[in-house]
Amino acid sequence: MSTSDQETAAGGDDAGDRWESVRDLPPSAKLVAKVLEYEDTLTQSQLTEETLLPPRTVRYALSRLEDAGAVESRFSFSDARKRLYTLDL
């Protein structure tokens, strides 16, 4: 069995590569990414509630995740003042 076959069989190939862009980010960004993985799409205020992090820390984490290409954001159709964040891994 080749190395790539072993990784695929162990489920490591997809999962390992998927989180590569997040691996070197601060713990707050990793927490925000993990919450988005479970909750799918949230606003910044919802992320603040779910992570129990201060709003400023969530803003910083989201900007780092966006810079890394791990999070996608779009305007909310129901309230254009809010942005919706989705994990893009």
Score class of each variant (00 low, 15 high):
48 T>I: 12
55 P>G: 09
11 G>C: 05
44 Q>S: 15
55 P>M: 02
48 T>G: 06
1 M>N: 01
41 T>F: 12
76 S>Y: 06
72 E>D: 13
52 L>Y: 04
57 T>C: 01
41 T>Y: 11
62 L>R: 08
18 R>L: 13
48 T>P: 03
27 P>F: 05
69 G>E: 07
7 E>Q: 12
48 T>A: 11
39 E>A: 15
9 A>T: 12
44 Q>N: 14
74 R>M: 03
74 R>C: 02
17 D>M: 02
89 L>F: 15
50 E>D: 13
87 L>A: 14
31 L>D: 05
5 D>N: 09
67 D>H: 04
33 A>N: 04
13 D>S: 11
23 R>M: 09
25 L>P: 04
21 S>P: 06
67 D>T: 03
73 S>D: 13
34 K>C: 09
31 L>C: 04
40 D>G: 01
77 F>I: 06
42 L>V: 14
8 T>A: 12
84 L>M: 12
26 P>W: 05
45 S>N: 12
40 D>H: 12
23 R>K: 14
40 D>I: 08
64 R>S: 09
25 L>C: 09
57 T>G: 02
23 R>I: 07
44 Q>K: 14
7 E>R: 09
31 L>S: 02
35 V>P: 00
52 L>S: 15
27 P>N: 12
21 S>F: 01
13 D>I: 00
30 K>G: 15
39 E>F: 05
31 L>N: 02
29 A>M: 02
44 Q>R: 15
34 K>W: 13
69 G>A: 03
18 R>K: 10
48 T>D: 04
70 A>R: 01
55 P>A: 13
62 L>F: 08
76 S>G: 05
48 T>L: 02
49 E>P: 00
11 G>I: 08
88 D>Q: 03
16 G>Y: 02
13 D>A: 05
40 D>T: 07
72 E>T: 10
30 K>R: 14
67 D>F: 06
39 E>K: 15
81 R>A: 10
89 L>H: 01
16 G>R: 02
66 E>S: 15
10 A>V: 03
45 S>L: 11
88 D>H: 14
1 M>C: 03
14 D>L: 08
35 V>N: 07
9 A>H: 09
38 Y>G: 12
15 A>D: 05
43 T>R: 10
42 L>Y: 11
45 S>E: 15
36 L>M: 06
34 K>Y: 11
30 K>T: 12
7 E>T: 03
34 K>L: 15
53 L>K: 01
27 P>Q: 12
66 E>W: 01
26 P>H: 07
58 V>C: 05
19 W>D: 03
42 L>S: 13
25 L>K: 04
56 R>N: 11
45 S>F: 01
84 L>D: 07
76 S>N: 04
67 D>W: 05
4 S>H: 07
69 G>N: 07
47 L>R: 05
69 G>I: 04
70 A>W: 00
12 G>Q: 09
78 S>W: 08
25 L>Q: 08
68 A>Y: 03
20 E>L: 09
3 T>S: 06
88 D>F: 11
76 S>M: 00
26 P>V: 14
58 V>R: 09
68 A>I: 06
48 T>E: 15
67 D>I: 10
87 L>H: 09
85 Y>L: 06
18 R>Q: 07
64 R>Y: 05
65 L>Y: 06
44 Q>C: 11
36 L>E: 01
29 A>E: 04
64 R>D: 13
12 G>P: 03
83 R>F: 05
66 E>R: 14
